[in-house]
Design a protein around this nucleic acid. Structure first.
Lengths: 147, 147
DNA sequence: AATGAAATATACTCCCT
DNA sequence: AGGGAGTATATTTCATT
């Protein structure tokens, strides 16, 4: 897939603010609004744009803690966990990874008690490592143009 | 901050698709479009909604690898790195964390050579651990209603 | 693949409840 | 805090280049 400069400009703007109108985008990059609409539709169709998501401040919604939790699954426990994890609403993201651990999860939690409950759910599946997020150094840095 | 059921419904919808119109949201939850607009504006003003972001498929844009990279900084190297990391366009997110490592970064990379270059930039600042993402188990699970 | 114009839908503002 | 009306703006479709 080849992405031209205009499409990169559109992607940049939509990563900054997914609610920009086609007209606004068009004015910024020097294109008519139907042209912008057509380009965005194509980017969606070919899967370059996966979707549009509101960024929620988890602290403001009552989730006081954010953490990265890794799991090194016990023998035969990875597969059942991959099903179970889908039922955990604390988990924002979960990835299979290389290395000593099998999975890394990004989770939000109400408080320390909630964290304890969450870890308790995991320890039957494998070794758990928890890293609590202290602050955001970089958040949602947009993907830019390829070389 | 107290979030009522209607606002939770709005947040749910906007996490699914930030480009839903106020009219669509209003029809779904049984509210007029100006009422939806007013509620969304308030959620933005008080910081519950941080923004709206297009989700970009990094593979489709030429970034073949995604990885989690942790840094355990050498003595006196954490602070300079916190400035330096802001200049790295590969880094989507970077968080200060508790535990053996000081930082975790979510990065996208063109290929293995790019990964090697990236790690080389970090090793002067501390111990680096790299976990390459193999697959997405859960991605962008929306934050739901507090208990 | 982009433009301009017409038709439709949505957003915004104001006033009323 | 929400509804309804009127106006401005945006989106969509289509014909044209």
């Amino acid at each position: 897939m080849k992405i031209d400069n205009l499409n990169w400009s559109i992607l940049k703007l939509l990563q900054e603010n997914a609610r920009y109108t086609n007209a606004e985008i068009g004015r910024t990059i020097g294109l008519s609004s139907p042209a912008v609409a057509e380009r965005i539709k194509k980017l969606e169709d070919i899967g370059v744009i996966d979707g549009y998501k509101a960024e929620i401040n988890h602290i403001q919604t009552g989730y006081q803690l954010k953490a990265f939790v890794t799991l090194r699954a016990f023998m035969g426990k990875l597969k059942p966990f991959l099903e179970q994890v889908k039922t955990y609403k604390e988990v924002l993201n979960c990835y299979r990874i290389t290395g000593n651990e099998n999975l890394v999860m990004e989770v939000v939690l109400y408080d320390q008690f909630h964290l304890e409950e969450f870890i308790d759910k995991l320890i039957t599946y494998g070794e758990v490592r928890t890293s609590i997020v202290l602050s955001n150094v970089i958040e949602n840095n947009p993907i830019g143009k390829n070389r």
